[in-house]
């Protein structure tokens, strides 16, 4: 009797809703998209590539002068961290980068707001903006070293110039595309031009400003590394270039990995800043 009852319970859903029960049967055969493999396919691929890489390295097919291996990178990276070389270079780079980028962010947003708000000014300086956006700013490096030498200032200036133009452009577009209804609200409530600027233009352009910062930060990072590779006596870019000149391929790879991780961390922090600044967009 008990058995019968439980059997009845089992088929009850099928009797009540035959179509749903069919789907249920289908689902028993786990689809590929539900498997462990699919969910972690990115990580699995990554590890597989690392293993293949290690195997190729160990097989000796490639001359070890030209290639490092994951294990080698970790080993050398660990030693370099302990000796403080890596941290020292990284801090050197970050100092250049943060100084230059903060300057670029503040002045870029400011200039962009002005250029977007006062159309004649925007139009007047548009040719410069177009010229600079189409050019890899690193071409200015020889000129910069000529003017300010190879010290701190030159790297800060490169970072600044690399980052500022996309920030200006995006901020300007953001201000130009402001909802005219909202500027009318400010007018209706008797806001002065400066008040309108602060209460409507700045927050209204914020989504574009943030995307400008995101582009700018990437380009500033390129700028600082490139500058260090060419004209510097420190920094992670210098470390990579120097290691390459000394045929120390392990160190080159360590440097590259550090740059990759730094880049990823910076991108992630931009996402945090973004979600903070644009919190009204999230439901």
């Amino acid at each position: 009797m008990e058995n019968l009852k439980s059997a009845e319970q089992k088929i009850a859903p099928a009797l009540n809703n035959p179509i749903a029960s069919l789907n249920l049967k289908k689902k028993k055969k786990t689809s590929f998209y539900d498997t462990f493999l699919f969910r972690h396919i990115g990580l699995i691929t990554f590890i597989t590539v690392l293993i293949l890489w290690e195997l190729i390295y160990r097989s000796g097919i490639v001359n070890p002068v030209f290639l490092s291996s994951p294990v080698q990178i970790v080993k050398v990276g660990y030693q370099l961290t302990l000796s403080g070389v890596l941290v020292e270079n990284l801090l050197f780079t970050l100092r250049n980068f943060i100084t230059g980028f903060l300057l670029a962010a503040v002045s870029g947003v400011f200039i962009g707001l002005i250029m977007g708000w006062y159309k004649p000014i925007g139009k007047a300086f548009d040719p410069f903006l177009t010229a600079m956006l189409g050019t890899p700013r690193i071409v200015l490096l020889p000129l910069i070293t000529l003017w300010v030498g190879v010290g701190f200032a030159s790297k800060v200036l490169v970072v600044f110039l690399a980052g500022i133009f996309p920030i200006i452009l995006n901020t300007m577009i953001g201000v130009k595309n402001l909802d005219p209804n909202l500027t009318r609200v400010a007018k209706a409530f008797g806001a002065s031009p400066i008040q309108t600027f602060i209460t409507v233009a700045l927050p209204g352009a914020m989504p574009q400003i943030v995307s400008g910062l995101r582009v700018g930060i990437g380009q500033s990072l390129v700028g600082v590394i490139a500058a260090e590779m060419f004209v510097s006596t420190g920094g992670i870019g210098y470390f990579v270039a120097q290691s390459s000149a000394n045929f120390n391929v392990d160190r080159v790879f360590v440097g590259i990995v550090v740059i990759i991780i730094t880049g990823m961390l910076i991108t992630q922090s931009v996402k945090w800043i973004e979600s903070y600044l644009l919190k009204h967009r999230i439901d």
Binding site: N181, V185, G190, T199
Partner: peptide
Amino acid sequence: RDRGVVFQDASLFPW
């Protein structure tokens, strides 16, 4: 400010 305008589309500041 002596006139209070209620706009057609609410025109609220989204932020």
